[in-house]
């Protein structure tokens, strides 16, 4: 069994990321992120074939990646997701529902269609770009604060009751 992750993004500006940045700006944080990118993050557990199997899945289903509007890459340690990465101190946070229909339904569908995939887990990867010289630990702390809505005024990206948050390596 092998875990394979892919990150998918729109080739046009993502309106949700634009709105997120707008909202974050209005929160008057001391050090807000300067840029925000949004990706769909799909995690697959393959019974066999690993990346090859997932490439096939991606080729077959335009619901996951439609090449006419999206690009995708295998998203694992060391992956550079955007060309402008070096300009800022980036922190990636992954938001996943503890339970969601999208993941369950795709797991069932891929199995029925005979792909050697044991499970699918869908989530959203938000990448927050802080000033280049920001201390990495500080950037991660600020991103985590922003990642969880504990109260009406603090945090934004996830509801802690129904969603889990993790750092994206």
């Amino acid at each position: 069994m092998e875990k394979v992750q892919i990150a998918v993004r729109l080739i046009t500006p993502d309106p949700a990321a634009v709105t997120a940045l707008n909202t974050v700006k209005a929160m008057r944080l001391q050090m807000p992120p300067l840029k925000i990118h949004r990706y769909d993050l799909w995690e697959f557990e393959t019974a066999e074939g690993g990346r090859k199997t997932i490439s096939e899945v991606v080729d077959h289903f335009t619901d996951i990646v439609n090449p006419n509007k999206q690009t995708w890459i295998f998203a694992e340690e060391g992956t550079v997701l955007t060309a402008e990465d070096s300009e800022l101190q980036w922190v990636g946070i992954v938001i996943r529902d503890y339970e969601d229909s999208v993941s369950g339904n795709w797991t069932g569908l891929l199995k029925r269609r005979g792909f050697p995939v044991d499970s699918v887990r869908w989530g959203v990867l938000w990448r927050l770009g802080y000033l280049k010289n920001t201390d990495e630990a500080l950037a991660r702390k600020m991103a985590l604060d922003l990642a969880v809505s504990q109260t009406r005024t603090g945090g934004l990206f996830s509801n802690p009751v129904s969603q889990e948050v993790s750092f994206w390596i």
Binding site: D97, E99, D100, S101, V102, G104, S149, Q150, T151, R152, N159, P160, V161, S162, Q163
Partner: peptide, 10 residues
């Protein structure tokens, strides 16, 4: 304080 959620339909 956020103590409940309206999550995606299952």
């Amino acid at each position: 304080s956020v103590q409940g959620a309206l999550a995606g339909n299952l």
